[in-house]
């Protein structure tokens, strides 16, 4: 792999603990969530190219969302 970046490589490749985040799919949208126990997760990031997804109130970062598949 060739990294082409102005950042110092030690900063990029510095190993840290594994990520506390998890990626899930909710209603067709990919979300990065932080599991908070009790089967729920807090939304950290929304990954979509559709701008209207970002306007949906239940998908705002910080909202709690069930991690397991809901009855959609």
């Amino acid at each position: 792999m060739i990294l082409y970046t102005p950042l110092p490589l030690e900063l990029v490749l510095m190993s840290d603990d594994s990520s506390p985040y998890q990626e899930i799919e909710y209603d067709g949208v990919t979300l990065v969530v932080q599991p908070t126990g009790t089967g729920l997760g807090k939304i950290i990031q929304v990954k979509s190219t559709n701008p209207s997804v970002y306007l949906r109130p239940e998908l705002q970062p910080g909202q709690q969302i069930p991690l397991t598949k809901t009855l959609i």
Partner: peptide
């Protein structure tokens, strides 16, 4: 909200062959 334009944000490092540290 109907939109005919989609938006692709490219943020941080572009990740390819290797997963970068979190």
């Amino acid at each position: 909200v109907k939109t005919n334009i989609h938006c692709l944000p490219i943020i941080g490092q572009i990740e390819g062959h290797l997963i970068l540290p979190p």
